[in-house]
Structures are given as structure tokens and as C-alpha cells.
Simulated assay, not measured.
Amino acid sequence: MESEFLDKVEYNTVVRICVTQNNLQELKEIWVQRDDEVKQLFYCNYGDFHYLLDIKVDEHLFRALAQFWNSPYNCFTFEKVDMVPTVEEYTALLRCLRIQADKAYSRAANVLTFVKKLMKITEMSEQWVTARIKQKGENKCIHWKSLRDLILAHPDTRKKVDVFALSIYGLIIFPKALGHVDKAVIDLFDQLDKRVTPVPAILAETFRSLSACRRTGEGRFIGCAQLLLAWFYNHF
């Protein structure tokens, strides 16, 4: 299927899109080492989407797929057929029963500071959090290694699961800063316990990034490449 799809690509219009991904080996090893009780707690709170860790992003296939992105209409156009990932499809791919489709994430007007949100999610002290906040470009973030240490050593199993899920959101679903979890991801993750759906935000970032890369002819895709390829595989 992939080879046939690649054969149809007109290489004179190749989009030089970069899909450089975070190294997920440590996350994979942590998941494998968790016992069934911890995994069940993860499933109950966040769904069964850890499979994204095992989806290998084929850059050649992804670049070929990106060439069919129709920016004016925000859809893929395969010859005369228009297709686009939907909220319902991405909700199914996230495999989370707690998500309520009618409660979409939106940034609140009065929100906790970045430090306070991290304190709430990790249950670590303000001093610990403040010492680990980094500036990457225009955004604040926290390094993955700091989160990894918490997953391995936090005394509260529930918090280990929370931080592991946060890491997946930051390194796979919204990989804005390689090796780090961005402030914007913390804001969205902080609201997941209200059963809001992150799917519209995931789709919006995917569409925005694809359109930006198509418009300039190059760039780094910063949406969730694994989810997009999972959607593609399901259709083809």
C-alpha cells in the first residue's frame, strides 16, 4: 500500500517537510516495565493510546502524504476525492472513554500560572518546579528528563501515571520543542481531568502545521505525526 501511494507522488512538487521526532525509547521502556495495576490506572484516566509509542514515522511516506494537502480547503485531495481527519475519527484513535465530545478544550481567561499548573500536576514544590523551567524560543517549557525522573521516583503512583501521560502529550501529540514539554501543552493537559476533549486542538495544530509547510514548501511538522499516520493507515 505504501509503495503504491509513494509511486503516485509527483516528485517535482516535493514538500521539504521535516518530521523530526523526539526519541521515545525511554518512554517505551518505562511503559513496558509498568505492572498491570499501573497500566490499568493509565487506561482508566487517559485511555488506551500508548500504542502511539510504537508507530514509526516514515518520513518518505509522510512527505508524500503532505503533498496531497489542500491548504485552501483544509483537506487531503487524492485525485478527485477529498478526505480529512474528523473529530470523531481522532476521538476513536485516542481510545479514551472519558473524553466528552461536547466539552472542547479552550484556554480560560483566568488561569493558573505555568508554575502553579506544574505544581498541581506533579505535586512538587514551587522551588522544584521553578528550578526546572526553561526558555525555548518564545515559550517556557520543562525538560523531558525532569519528568522522566518523576515517573521513576515519585512516591505517588497516581502522579507517576499523570506525568507519564503528560510526557506523551508533550513529546508525541504536541511536539513543539524537541526534548521538552511546552507551556501550552501543560495548559491543555491541566484541563483533561474535566473530561474536555483535546481533539479539536490536535486537529487544529495538524491542519495549521500542514498548511504552513505547504505554503512555504518546507518546514518542521509539529502536529502529531503518529495520529495522522494512524488515520491514514485506517483508510488505506
Rank of each mutant, 00 (worst) to 15 (best):
E4N: 09
K8F: 07
T13N: 13
V15E: 06
C18K: 08
C18A: 03
Q21L: 03
N23V: 08
Q25L: 09
Q25K: 12
E29Y: 04
I30T: 11
W31Q: 07
V32N: 03
V38Q: 14
L41T: 10
Y43A: 11
Y43F: 14
C44W: 15
C44Q: 15
N45S: 15
N45G: 09
G47R: 13
D48M: 14
I55V: 15
V57Y: 09
H60A: 11
A64V: 10
W69I: 06
W69C: 08
W69H: 07
S71R: 09
P72K: 09
Y73R: 09
N74K: 08
N74P: 00
C75D: 15
F78P: 01
F78M: 02
F78H: 03
E79A: 05
V81R: 09
V81S: 04
V84H: 11
Y90F: 15
A92V: 12
R95M: 12
C96P: 00
C96S: 08
C96M: 06
R98L: 08
Q100P: 00
R107V: 05
A109Y: 08
A109Q: 12
N110P: 00
V111S: 12
V115G: 07
K117A: 05
L118Q: 11
M119Y: 07
K120V: 05
K120A: 07
T122E: 12
E123Q: 14
E123R: 14
E126A: 15
W128Y: 14
V129E: 15
R132K: 11
K134T: 12
G137K: 07
I142S: 01
K145Q: 15
L147Y: 04
D149V: 14
I151Q: 01
A153M: 08
H154Q: 05
R158K: 13
K159D: 00
K159I: 10
K159C: 00
V161R: 02
V161S: 02
D162N: 05
I168W: 08
Y169P: 04
G170P: 05
L171F: 03
I172D: 13
I172R: 13
F174Q: 02
F174M: 01
K176A: 03
G179N: 10
V181Q: 09
K183D: 09
A184I: 12
I186C: 13
I186D: 01
D187Y: 14
D187S: 15
V196A: 03
T197S: 15
A201T: 05
A204H: 07
A204D: 04
E205S: 12
T206A: 15
F207N: 13
G217N: 05
E218G: 01
R220F: 06
R220L: 06
F221W: 05
L228Q: 10
W231P: 02
Y233A: 01
F236G: 10
